[in-house]
Design a binder for these strands. Structure first.
Length: 362
DNA sequence: CAGACGTGGTC
DNA sequence: TGACCAAGTCT
């Protein structure tokens, strides 16, 4: 069945008007007070939407407040140093979001006189603004009835309408966008979209939804048929691959510590870290030799002081922390420097690496 | 489409 | 403890 046809079929006999009114009313009464809901400033909405991607509200709140203090306008963010932006993002994860956001804001400043576009195509062409964020900005900041389909929306609507498609597939997101287009209207599209998401966050939760408190229970086909916990359908993820590393706490005679900047693309791009030895390639015995080749310094490899595990979405670093002392030589490495431990706060560092920090002696 | 891309919380 | 998750986007 074609998508348009399916949408018509799914919404057959569904009381859109009543559903819409109930949801909007509930949202206006029960919505949480959140910093990005203080006003409709498109820049604030934008920043919040980027931060909230795959990230909990409680985690985002302090980052958002700090970020808006530091970069209150598109101009301020456009002019900032990229490392400064990454530092403000430190610990939030998915760092390409920060880089893309700044690139896109610079484009808004140069191409649109600093005004966030209220146009779907212009918005969607900005780096880091995908279908969801585009719809969120259009509806929340500009009251334009566009779908903003995230995980919450797919969970809520998969239950309301009993849609059993795998929500990890892109085509399924498009199906839900088509459904939202039919459900949303000129009547407060901002509250409608936010209500869908807020309902998913507060009531229609993944594990044990509070159906008895649900403002649209009467519209819910999954509840009616007792299958709400079976939805949404989602393919299981693959297990992460483990990679063992030696994490080197290298100190020179002054007590300064060696750190290096990661490549500008890929995992943790442009962030700083302690030197790491991939154990799959090198091996404990060969570390001193390998280190001399990489950094031009003769070192004494000390003992293991800690183990740190860092879990990513797609892989796991298992790091053994080793103390290393510089004996002689001059540092010869493009992206590595010695710094005083107390200056660590100037450099954006992945959080788990900072756990090694207390083991440094001055 | 599948896989890369973070981190902290929960059961 | 492992698995899944939390307001996705890019390649």
């Amino acid at each position: 069945m074609k998508r348009a046809e399916r949408i018509k079929h799914i919404l057959n006999n569904f009381d859109k008007e009543s559903y819409r009114k109930n949801l909007i009313h509930w949202f206006k009464e029960e919505q949480r007070i959140l910093p990005w809901r203080e006003n409709q400033d498109p820049y604030r909405v934008w920043v919040s939407e980027i931060m909230l991607q795959q990230t909990r509200v409680d985690t985002v709140i302090p980052y958002f407040n700090h970020f808006m203090d530091k970069f209150p306008t598109p101009d301020a963010l456009a002019q900032a140093d990229e490392q400064e932006v990454l530092k403000a993002w430190e610990g939030l994860g998915y760092y390409s979001r920060a880089r893309n956001l700044q690139n896109a804001v610079r484009e808004v400043v140069s191409e649109y006189e600093g005004v966030v576009p209220a146009d779907a195509e212009e918005l969607g062409n900005l780096k880091g603004v995908g279908p969801y964020t585009r719809g969120a900005i259009l509806s929340i900041a500009y009251d334009i009835p566009e779908p903003a389909v995230d995980g919450n929306v797919m969970r809520v609507l998969s239950r309301i309408l009993r849609v059993e498609d795998d929500i990890s597939k892109q085509s399924t997101r498009k199906l839900f966008e088509g459904l939202v287009k039919e459900l949303i209207s000129d009547e407060d599209p901002s509250s409608f979209n936010q209500g869908l998401m807020e309902l998913g966050a507060l009531v229609c939760t993944p594990k044990t939804p509070s159906c008895m408190l649900c403002p649209v229970q009467e519209h819910c086909r999954a509840f009616d048929e007792g299958v709400e916990t079976e939805l949404p359908v989602k393919a299981s993820k693959k297990k992460q691959k483990k990679s063992p590393y030696l994490l080197l706490l290298v100190q020179n005679e002054k007590g300064d510590v060696l750190i290096e900047q990661r490549p500008d693309t890929g995992l943790l791009a442009s962030l700083w870290q302690y030197p790491m030895v991939p154990l799959e390639d090198i091996g404990h015995e060969a570390v001193a030799n390998w280190f001399y080749g990489e950094y031009g310094l003769k070192v004494e490899v000390g003992e293991s002081v800690d183990r740190i595990k860092h879990v990513f979405s797609h892989l796991i670093w298992e790091m053994e922390v080793i103390k290393v002392t510089v004996k002689e030589g001059t540092l010869d490495h493009e992206r590595a420097i010695f710094i005083a431990p107390e200056d660590m706060e100037d450099y954006p560092f992945p959080v788990s690496h900072q756990k090694a920090h207390p083991h440094i002696n001055r």
